[in-house]
């Protein structure tokens, strides 16, 4: 869980204190980076820094202390993710030729073992969930937000977020148990 900061830090940042900006960045940057990384953004660290640029430039409009700042920060991160998905939908994916990723060649034993490990990772498990279920789990587990905060970010009611969370956990449980059974 990311460390919680007192509300005075937000007030100091709103008055232009540079040290307060540093403490906010240190407290929230890992969570934002992990959220964007699990979501599959290519340059997740660059996107995280853009998120904090937006948050710092609008910190004067933040209300609710540190929890309000956390909600606002992950709202911006969620908007960045949505923008990235739309941009990728509009533009065809262009990738250069990498001989190491050419599937027409036979992989070595080590490469096959690593790929199997990645396939069993949490990222692959999450990809089998619906997008809304992924979003709820990431905001609840990675960003450590409450049901009300997740509902505010996703624009839904708290009850619907609770139902989405339950279905996501049930779906993840079935996926994990199936993989355990296969192994």
């Amino acid at each position: 869980m990311s460390p919680a900061l007192p509300d005075d830090v937000v007030t100091a940042a709103q008055s232009g204190d540079a040290a307060a900006f540093s403490r906010i960045y240190a407290a929230l940057a890992p969570g934002v980076n992990g959220y964007l990384k699990v979501r599959g953004l290519e340059d997740h660290e660059g996107a995280a820094q853009e998120v904090f640029l937006t948050v710092f430039s609008r910190i004067g409009s933040v209300h609710g202390g540190f929890q309000g700042l956390r909600t606002f920060t992950f709202s911006v991160a969620h908007a960045r993710y949505v923008d990235d998905v739309r941009r990728r939908a509009r533009q065809p994916h262009v990738s250069g030729y990498d001989p190491d990723t050419d599937v027409r060649a036979v992989d070595s034993a080590e490469t096959a073992a690593l790929e199997s490990l990645e396939a069993t990772g949490v990222g692959q498990q999450l990809k089998q969930l619906k997008p809304e279920q992924q979003e709820v789990l990431l905001l609840r587990v990675v960003a450590d937000l409450s049901l009300e905060q997740v509902a505010e970010i996703m624009g839904r009611t708290t009850g619907s977020i609770k139902q989405l969370q339950r279905r996501a956990l049930l779906r993840l449980k079935s996926i994990v148990e199936r993989e355990e059974a296969l192994v």
């Binding site: 990311s2 890992p30 980076n33 992990g34 959220y35 990384k37 699990v38 949490v122 789990l137 990675v142």
Partner: peptide, 11 residues
């Protein structure tokens, strides 16, 4: 999944 949110920034 929770540990992914605690990885330090690489850059």
């Amino acid at each position: 999944l929770r540990a992914a949110g605690h990885e330090p920034m690489q850059t």
